[in-house]
Structure formats: structure tokens, C-alpha cells
Design a protein around this nucleic acid. Sequence first.
DNA 1: CATGAATGAGCATTCATTCAT
DNA 2: TATGAATGAATGCTCATTCAT
Lengths: 221, 221, 221, 221
Amino acid sequence: MSNPHDSASNGAVRPDGEAREPQRRSPGRPRREDRMPVRDEILKTASVLFMEEGYEAVSLSGIAERCGVTKASVYYHFEGKPALFTAAVIRMLQLALAGTRRVLDQEGKSLRLRLQEVAERRLSRIQHIEFEALMREASHYLDDRQRTAIREAEQELHDLLSLHFARAIADGEIRKGDSMLMAHSYTALLMIGNRQAAKNMYASPSELAGPIMDMFWTGVG
Amino acid sequence: MSNPHDSASNGAVRPDGEAREPQRRSPGRPRREDRMPVRDEILKTASVLFMEEGYEAVSLSGIAERCGVTKASVYYHFEGKPALFTAAVIRMLQLALAGTRRVLDQEGKSLRLRLQEVAERRLSRIQHIEFEALMREASHYLDDRQRTAIREAEQELHDLLSLHFARAIADGEIRKGDSMLMAHSYTALLMIGNRQAAKNMYASPSELAGPIMDMFWTGVG
Amino acid sequence: MSNPHDSASNGAVRPDGEAREPQRRSPGRPRREDRMPVRDEILKTASVLFMEEGYEAVSLSGIAERCGVTKASVYYHFEGKPALFTAAVIRMLQLALAGTRRVLDQEGKSLRLRLQEVAERRLSRIQHIEFEALMREASHYLDDRQRTAIREAEQELHDLLSLHFARAIADGEIRKGDSMLMAHSYTALLMIGNRQAAKNMYASPSELAGPIMDMFWTGVG
Amino acid sequence: MSNPHDSASNGAVRPDGEAREPQRRSPGRPRREDRMPVRDEILKTASVLFMEEGYEAVSLSGIAERCGVTKASVYYHFEGKPALFTAAVIRMLQLALAGTRRVLDQEGKSLRLRLQEVAERRLSRIQHIEFEALMREASHYLDDRQRTAIREAEQELHDLLSLHFARAIADGEIRKGDSMLMAHSYTALLMIGNRQAAKNMYASPSELAGPIMDMFWTGVG
DNA sequence: CATGAATGAGCATTCATTCAT
DNA sequence: TATGAATGAATGCTCATTCAT
């Protein structure tokens, strides 16, 4: 067991280029230049695929093929499908967390403006499967450690949002209330962006951001 | 032409007892006993399973087993997995539509109260996978007719909600705005009920209904 | 066992119209007019399909559907697939025997001319699978009685040809030799008509009859 | 791209020992032992089975079992049943082509003697299903590339024969005529060797060669 | 690090067959 | 006569996983 199988860990978050075409490497360890690429590439590819298609629908051979490596290579880097899934989802959540934090931490902008910016960014991305749906499908296959690790990573996102709502309440910027529920309401409303019917109502997905923020801010009453 | 394969149809909706233990039957038509019509039982079981676990995660043998019949029987009644899925989802949507309409059509109650009642009912049910996630997973396997049939059934639900929002706008009961977006916002917020983290915040799922309705009605601003 | 299952028998040979569209009959026994149609129709349809596609490739539901009856009806009329196959093949062979006999028995025509006429008729028909191939595939499933019955029916065809060759030898119309081998050579050469490559060499299949008869009559030497 | 799926290829042709008893192996790569390369063994087994029993009648599990491997192994080496069939049939045709060429290319022997030798060899082999029958059955399942590849391999055999007939015509060794039709007549007559009835007429199949060659050379006239 | 070759379990689907009505 | 509803067995195929090299 000398393999680097630390399924729930995840290396430094590195946004990088798109999947390369499977250029056959010559045998033996490659000279440095493209350091530590394979594990990361697998992770990145897996993230995208799992988010787009769910757990069962994604096959390890599919991932391997897209990365130009073999299935066995994937098994060298990750303990198995559940471990890879865990790592991939966590990677994605941390990316989202970092991005969201960067926007929310801007000084001198109203909360509403910052939330709108977050919304615009998320809505313009290729849409992810709703998180709970993904988890429900996958959780049969995950063990407790894995489930918990993912839940925690997700919780961080809501914690971050909740924190900012709490601050805004303290500042009188928004009405009083349960800041965590506000966080969940916010992310739930963003899910409208996944819906075909809703997307058809506007020219581009990010145009949904305004109307959704209106709903979130003023409600229907 | 001897098979009753009309995948998109759905018999009378009858909520009733759960699947019995799988007592092996010999071939040929069994004497009637009690047994609810098998086709209906399959449909009901399939609805539940697909909603709970997604498309791929549900196997036809699983469904068959739960109904106490063989896989081949399922194939006698439905053309295949996609057809069964289509029928099951539509059945479920029509159930939901009927229930929702019954509540919303009540006279003399404010829209808010009626919406809250709908929310309570839905939140207390075993939760469904988010609809879009389910469709994204399944739609690889569905043909155009099936996709359309499902989409239409779902649209009816939002049409119904939208109609009531439009009326309320006309009556000055709520603020002006895009009634269809309101409908989507409402159902999106109900999805919070699927979230483990959110459920942990309250004693029972239906207690979420109040706070969610507050969010929906007044927003955070 | 009051069913009329006499698998190896075959009713009167009746060339008749093509398969009708499955027009639902009203329940109850139909009034006389179209007497004894179902069994025959099944037999006819089965003949065509088995000859065109082989044994395994043809399903009883396929046959039933084409006849506008149910699978169970097929089972009412025939003991099972092997029995139906046996009856169908024998029916077809007897048809061929009758047709061939009619041509060969013509008075005042040379054997060569009569053989050429037989060849033209056969080549212009939708082509049958080579008989031995069909039998090899099917014989796993047939019992001894069935195998024998088919073999005998086929033998009659070669007996008929052989008889005419023997007569021609006696009359000095053709060279001396094994008349049964001549019969087999003749039918073997006709199989060229089944070959795509050969068919492409001529405008219409029946144009093959001349050249093939030349080969048969004079050889290459 | 990790699978060696090149369905139409065919490795070096090596006639060798039969399949061993299916000793269950544990997963992972087995230590070499003797074992002929598995891919080749599958191919050889498949050739025999398809030729003997047709397309549908042969199951991949049957092939796997005879080779002492699992179905999944067959799928590792071949894309699917159609691909395996294609490879197997082409392998067999190329074997036949090579053998036939070897005999026909002998110097200093009359065409008739060489053809007789080819006939003796073929007739003494376990008999193949008639080729067209096989193709008719299989072609539903093959794609265009596969169909073409097989057709071409078969055409080569007739091209070879046709070439030798053409030469013999030029040399005045045989009568003038369509050399390709001669080739087809020759192979069609050899099919007599498949027939039970014909085989019963002689002590051993290869004794059919003489009489058949007589027919081919001098006809009945 | 990486992979080629293999396995076992499971799945969707089809089919011949049976039997109560 | 005919059929609707059911079964059991088989088939083609995919997938996660393993291991010697």
C-alpha cells in the first residue's frame, strides 16, 4: 500500500487548461516540466463529468479515456470510484468556495451587489447537477468518512454565505432572520438556472441573475 | 401488438398498500387473489424508486423484486426502462398536479395560506430528487417523444402555479412581476427541504414550510 | 391434449394472398367465409420468415404479429417452435416439389429446356437460405421425428430430379452417370443465384439461368 | 483507447492445440504458462463455431467457455459480437485463400488436377455453413465496414479462382467462357459436400471430389 | 508510474413456453 | 378458439476492480 491514496485530500487547487488530446507519453518517468499533471487532470476531468452526468452515469474508463491514460492509471492515483468521486467533488466545492469568497470579501460594495456578482458567475457556468441529487445517488457507494468529508466541504460554502448574511443583519443592511436559511434560500434560487424552462425565458443564463436577486431581496409580497 | 405498451399513459391514481413478499409464482396466469393490478403496482414502485435514487441507480430487477414479480413481467407491461421511467415520472407529476390544484383551488383563503399548505404537504413527503437532475441523468436514454411528454407534464405544474400568481397580481394581493419566475422561485425554494443540512435545522421537515414561505414572501431586504 | 398438434403433418397446400394487416377480429368464432385461415396463415408467414432469416433469427412473436394474432394463438395451433418450423419447411418443400413436378412432367420438351424453366422460376423467387445451412442451425432444436420428416420431404425433390435424369440417361439424352449426383449438382448450381456477387453480374436474377444451365450441361472442359 | 479493438485485423495464422479445461483464474494478469495468446484462441474457436452453427446460434459465453476465459475477456479483445464475427470469418477466409493459392500455384500440374486437390482438401474439412446463408443471417448485425470487409475477403477467393480459369482459357486448357461464373460454379458444386444425403452416397467426403470434378469438367450433356 | 490483461457481478432485453380464463 | 398475463433461462454488454509486469 505504498500508493498515495488519500482519497479525501485534494492537492492545491489549480485552475488550468482544458483536457489535452491523449498524446502518448514515451515510457519511463517524464522529465519535470509538466510536473504532477496526471493526478490533477484526472481530478479535473472527473469533477466536470460527475457534475454534469451524476455518479453512476460516469465510468472510470470514460474518465481515463478523456485524460489519455488507462483505467489502471486512475486506480494508481485513486483508491476506487468512490474515492475519486469524493476527491473530485471536494475539489470542485473548494474551487467554488474560493471564488465565492473572493467576490464576497470585496470591500465597499453592498451585499446585494456582491451576491448578484456571485450569481452571475455561477449562472454563466455550465450547470452542475443539483448537489443533493448528486449526493443521494452517490451516497450508497460512499463510506462514512467520504460522506462526511463532502458534507463538510459543502457546509463551508453555506457557512461563508451565512457569515456574510449575519454581518449584514448586524449592520442593518438586511432584515433580521436565520442567516443559514438565507444562505440555503440563496443557493436554492440559483438552481433555477439549471432549468430548461427557465433558461428559455431569457436570452442568456446570466440575465437570470437580476430577476432572481429581486425575488431573493424583496420576495413576492 | 399483443402487449399493452402505451408508455405515456397512466391509469387511475390509487394510493394503496405496499409490495408483498416475493412469493414465487408458477408461469401462466395466476388466479386473481387480491393483488392490485400489477401494472399499477409496478408503476407506483418505479415512481418511488426513480424519485429517490435517480435513473441509472434503479434496476428493473430491483423494481420487479419489490413488486413480487419477475423482470420479464415488467417487460410485459412496459416497453423498456425508458418507457417505464417516462410513465412513472408522469404519473408522479400528475399526482402532484392534482394535489396541488386541489389545495390552490380552495376558495376564501389567501394565496399565501394556500401556498403554505402546498409547501407543508410537499415537505412532509419523502423527498424527490430535484427534477432537473433526474432529467439530465435520464435524458440520454429517452427518445424525443418521451422527453417531451415529461416536460409537458412538468410544465403543467408550473403553469398552474403561474396562473395563481397572475391572478394574485391582478387582485393586488402580491407585487407585480413575472408570474412564471415566481412559480419557479417557489418550487426552487421548496427544494431546500431535500437538504440534509436544512432538515437538521428543524425538528420536522414540514416546519420548514413557515420560514421558507417567509423568505418567499418578504425576501431578505 | 385435444389440440390439433400434428406437427409433422401439413394441410392442403394452398398458395394464397399475402399477410393481411392485423385487423382486429371481433370476439367469438368468426362466421364461416374465411374458413381455416389462421393456421394456414401462420404456416405461410413462418415459411417465408424461416427461409429468409433462418431458425433462431425468427421469433414466434414476430410471426404472430405479422399474422395479426397473438403468440398464444400460435401455440394453440402448433406445439412449439420446432414443430412450427418443421411444418413450415415441409410445406415449402412440397410447394416446390409440386411446382417442379409440373414443369418436369411437360411432354415433348427436352430435359434441358424443362430444367432451364425450373431454374428460371427458382431464380426469380425471393431467395431461400441454402437448405443445409438452415437445417444445421435448426437441427439442435428438432427431435428425430421432425428431422426425418424434413429430410424425407427434401429427398423427394431430389428423387424427382434424379428420376428425370435417369430417364434421360436411358433415352441417351444425356451422358451416363450417377443420376442422384446430377440432381445434387443441379440444385447446388442454382444456389449461385443466392450470391450477391453473382447477382451483380447480371441485370436480373433469372438471366443467370442460361449461363448456369450451360455450365451444368457442358462443364468447363 | 486502451483496448486493442481492431476488429478486422487478423494476426499470424497458427494452427494449434485445442482449448483446455476451463480452470478458473483469479483476476489480474495471470503468469504466462504456455497458453497460446488468448486473442488468437478466441478467434480460432469463434471461427469454428460460427462456421458450424451460424451467427445467432453461437453465444459469446459459449466461445468464452470453450477457451477457458470469461465473457468479459472476450469483450476485452473484441468490441462485440459483430466485430468478433467479422474477425473470425475473415481469418477463416484468409486461411482458405492461402491454402487454395498454395495448391493452385503449383507448377507443371494441369488445372483439373489442381482443382481436384483443392476440392479434396475442402471436402475433408469439417464443413462450413454455406457462406451466403451465414452472411444473410449475420448481416442484420454488422455495420457497413464489417460487411464490406468480409465481402472483400470472400471476393479474393473467387478472384483467385477466376484468375486461374482465365489463364486456362488463354492457354486453351478449357473452353471459353465467363471465368468468374466458372469460379462460382466450382465453389457451388463443392457445397454438395455439406449435404447429408450426398455424404451418405460415398464412404468418405473426399471421395466426392472425383465425381464432382467430373460434373464440373464435362457437365451432363 | 503505468498499463495490459483478466475477472465477477450486474443490467437491459428477448424469447419460448405455460396456463387460467 | 383464442388470448392476456406471467415465467425462467439465456444473451449481449458494461463496469469496477485486481494484479503481474
